[in-house]
Amino acid sequence: MERSNHTVTEFILLGFTTDPGMQLGLFVVFLGVYSLTVVGNSTLIMLICNDSCLHTPMYFFIGNLSFLDLWYSSVYTPKILVTCISEDKSMSFAGCLCQFFFSAGLAYSECYLLAAMAFDRYVAISKPLLYARAMSIKLCALLVAVSYFGGFINSSIITKKTFSFNFCHENIIDDFFCDLLPLVKLACGEKGNYKFFMYFLLASNVICPAVLILASYLFIIATVLRISSSQGRLKAFSTCSSHLTSVTLYYGSILYIYALPRSSYSFDTDKIVSTFYTVVFPMLNPMIYSLRNKDVKEALKKLLP
C-alpha cells in the first residue's frame, strides 16, 4: 500500500469529550470495564481449559468467543485510556490502519463464530443422540479456523480498499477509534463504488451469518415444538438463551450503526452504540455464559479454595 499518496500522516481522535473532569471520570469507568473484561474472559478460558467437564463442543466455542472478546477489547480500550488522560489525541497513520484491520477482522470473525455456535445448538437439540459424533473436535476446530480465516481475509480486503483513498483534507476523526464511517467521511475522491463494495462486505460478513443463525433457530423452534412435555421444551430453550442474548446484543448494535439509512446517521449516536459493542459487550459475554450456567459455576467452585 503506497503511503506517498497520502498527505495525512496522523489522525486526531476527538473521543467523547474535551472536558478534563469528564475525561478523568471516563478513564475510571473504562479502566473498570476493561479490568472486568480481562478478568472475566481470562477466568472463563482458564475454567474451560482446566475442567474436563467443560471439554465439550459448546464450551470449546464459548472459550474461543472469550478469546475473541479479550483480543477485541484490547484493540480499543488501551488507546481510549491513553486519550482520556493525555493531551495528545493523535494516532499515526500506521496505528490507525492496524487498529482498523484488527477491529474489522475480529468483528467479522465474531459474526462467523456466533453462526457456528448457532449450528452447534441446532445439532445438540435436533440430533441429541448423534451430537457427540456429529460435532467432532475436528469439525469444531475447522469451524473456528474458518471463522478466523474468513474474518481476517475480508478485513485485509476492506483495509486495503479503505486506506487506498487519499486523506487530503481534515485529519480529525469524530470518534474514539479509527472506524469505517468517519474514515470514509475524511477520504477524498469518488466513493460511489466504494460504498457499494462496503455494503457488499456488510452483507457477506454480517447479514449472511445472521441469516444462518436465524435459520438454525427456526429449525430449533420446529424441533422444540415437537417435544411433548413443557418441561422438556423449557429445558431445550434454556440451552440457547445465553447464545440468543449474545447474538441480539452484538448484531443489534452493529446493524444499528451500519444498516441505518444515512439520513438517520449521527456520529454522537454512533459513539454511544459503538462503545457498547467494542467495550461493554466483551465484558458482558462471560457473565452471560456463566451466571446461569451450572457447569461453569461448579468448575469455579472447584477452582476456589
Results as ranks from 00 to 15, higher is better:
residue 35 S to N: 04
residue 39 V to I: 14
residue 57 P to G: 09
residue 50 N to Y: 08
residue 21 G to K: 07
residue 272 I to G: 01
residue 133 R to Y: 07
residue 164 S to R: 10
residue 91 M to G: 01
residue 230 S to N: 07
residue 220 I to F: 02
residue 87 E to C: 04
residue 205 N to D: 02
residue 268 D to E: 13
residue 277 Y to L: 01
residue 126 S to G: 03
residue 40 G to Y: 10
residue 227 I to P: 01
residue 112 Y to S: 04
residue 41 N to M: 12
residue 279 V to G: 00
residue 298 E to R: 13
residue 239 T to E: 12
residue 181 L to K: 15
residue 79 K to I: 03
residue 178 C to W: 11
residue 158 I to E: 05
residue 83 T to V: 08
residue 224 V to P: 05
residue 300 L to P: 00
residue 101 F to D: 01
residue 220 I to W: 08
residue 277 Y to H: 11
residue 158 I to R: 01
residue 80 I to N: 00
residue 128 P to R: 12
residue 125 I to A: 05
residue 71 W to D: 04
residue 89 K to N: 14
residue 297 K to F: 00
residue 78 P to T: 10
residue 238 S to E: 10
residue 158 I to L: 10
residue 46 M to C: 01
residue 256 Y to D: 06
residue 180 L to H: 14
residue 187 A to Y: 10
residue 247 V to C: 09
residue 24 L to R: 06
residue 96 C to F: 09
residue 66 S to F: 00
residue 249 L to W: 04
residue 185 K to D: 11
residue 238 S to V: 02
residue 257 I to G: 00
residue 210 A to Y: 14
residue 34 Y to K: 02
residue 132 A to K: 15
residue 31 L to V: 02
residue 273 V to E: 04
residue 154 N to L: 08
residue 164 S to K: 13
residue 283 M to T: 15
residue 119 F to H: 06
residue 95 G to L: 05
residue 31 L to C: 03
residue 234 L to R: 15
residue 104 A to Q: 14
residue 146 V to E: 07
residue 192 G to P: 00
residue 35 S to H: 09
residue 123 V to H: 03
residue 158 I to K: 03
residue 21 G to N: 11
residue 154 N to E: 09
residue 34 Y to R: 03
residue 191 K to P: 00
residue 209 P to Y: 05
residue 208 C to Q: 14
residue 76 Y to T: 10
residue 36 L to N: 01
residue 40 G to M: 08
residue 242 S to F: 03
residue 286 P to R: 08
residue 146 V to P: 02
residue 105 G to Y: 12
residue 36 L to V: 09
residue 126 S to M: 13
residue 67 F to V: 04
residue 116 A to Y: 03
residue 274 S to K: 08
residue 131 Y to V: 07
residue 199 Y to M: 09
residue 173 I to C: 01
residue 302 K to S: 05
residue 120 D to T: 09
residue 3 R to F: 15
residue 118 A to T: 07
residue 15 G to F: 04
residue 142 L to G: 03
